[in-house]
Nucleic acid binder design. Structure first.
Lengths: 245, 245
DNA sequence: AAGTGGTCTAGACCACTCA
DNA sequence: GAGTGGTCTAGACCACTTG
């Protein structure tokens, strides 16, 4: 049978074929062979190219759609997601206006510095003693008021030459796309905390006002940490929207 | 071909076969034909019983596994999930201890009353003017301290005779299983709010202390609202864990 | 060894989009 | 009407669990 030969030849280390194919597709997208917004070849052609059945190719594509790497639409084709597009920029931003729509606001006062990773950063980002990070600090404004201060740490290894780049969007979603990093899941820990002095100042509230503290760790599709962010948020009208299920 | 006849006969209103099969399986589980923890027949037998191919049955079962209705394990079988089991009781409970494990605590002072739905309840739960609700109020304790007060509203229509039942777990997950309701998703809106007097009293904090307010709407698998719950939470050591992605 | 779910194939046909 | 993804079939074989 063809299946015997095919499986023996292709299925290394007992890892299912469709997973290997998914990884191969991810690599192509990460390398930039297929750009965000572009259509990729149809299922039958892809299957032929990989030497697998279309059912297996389909399973790989199903996975990538679940992981928000691709979007398929019947009759049109399969497209690489553009993570800077309206529908996806706010993927990890859970603060909503009263109407339920994401309240992004406008970023102001962006500061970026490079520094050796401190102990907390090394622990959260799984870094070694010699690794360094970019620290990004930013405030977001809505209706002429600052409502959140974000302080993010990013391993420099993932973003070579970041400081030299000019005029780019420093939100993690855009950065990841720029560097061909596909984002996976995030975990956000929410507490109530008194605003530290410098943050209270930026937010224009009295020191020690109770604000929402968001401690978020963002992972790539393969599970490597790419961003640790602590945000302090003074919500007057909106809310944090958590989806469970 | 067999496929022509089969499709024409079975595929009503153009709804995919695997979705119809999934719904049929859900109904059987809801009716109690298959009890939580029980194994259901194997895929081939099920497919034969429904007169479909095993691939299609598999797709239906895949969906039910995603929706946490079933658990499959290779070599053992397919089992109906027991939502009162350790792994699933805390499915909608996002408050965690510092170690990351769910901090359930012990429920105390449970009060249940039946009342006509007020305006807010009617709006959130999609009820009509004549519908009524059960209102459940409960405090949870951890380490000899109350840390959260929950006030939930449940449409009486879903839980007939609830007040007469004795010695049952009044957490929504257990109630749903008791009444054959399969739970789907929830949306939780998180804000910081001053604790209302009666709640501050139960939580043993000064009135108007800033606490975390959790406003959660829980839906069934078919998208009907089954519980609207507002919790006020005074977290000393833990955090709310939101998962994104 | 028997029984289960998991993977994979090689098709056919349906539903949809767009030129 | 040509081209796309979506559904469905009828198998074979692999990996795993249990008696």
């Amino acid at each position: 049978m063809a299946s015997d030969k095919g499986l023996a030849a292709i299925r290394l280390f007992n890892r299912p074929l469709y997973l290997q194919v998914r990884d191969a597709l991810v690599e192509r997208i990460g390398k930039g062979d297929w750009k965000p917004g572009m259509a990729i070849p149809n299922e039958v052609d892809l299957a032929r190219e990989f030497g697998i059945s279309s059912g297996t190719m389909r399973k790989a594509l199903d996975l990538l759609e679940d992981q928000r790497v691709l979007t398929r639409s019947q009759g049109r084709g399969t497209f690489v997601n553009d993570h800077s597009s309206a529908g996806l920029v706010s993927r990890f931003w859970r603060i909503s206006a009263p109407d339920g729509k994401p309240m992004n606001g406008d970023a102001k006062r962006i500061e970026i510095v490079e520094a050796p990773a401190n102990e907390k950063e090394r622990r959260r980002l799984h870094l070694g003693a010699e690794d360094s990070v970019y620290r990004v600090r930013r405030a977001r404004w809505h209706a002429d008021r600052p409502f959140v201060v974000e302080e993010a740490s990013l391993p420099t290894a993932h973003f070579p030459g970041l400081l030299e780049r000019k005029g780019i969007d420093h939100r993690i979603v855009g950065l990841a796309q720029l560097y061909g990093i596909l984002l996976g899941k995030a975990e956000e820990r929410i507490t109530i905390a008194p605003a530290p002095p410098s943050i209270a100042d930026t937010l224009r509230v009295a020191p020690d006002t109770s604000v929402m503290r968001l401690d978020r760790l963002l992972l790539t599709l393969d599970g490597q940490p790419v961003e640790w962010r602590v945000a302090h948020c003074h919500l007057v009208s909106g809310f944090y929207l958590a989806e469970i299920g």
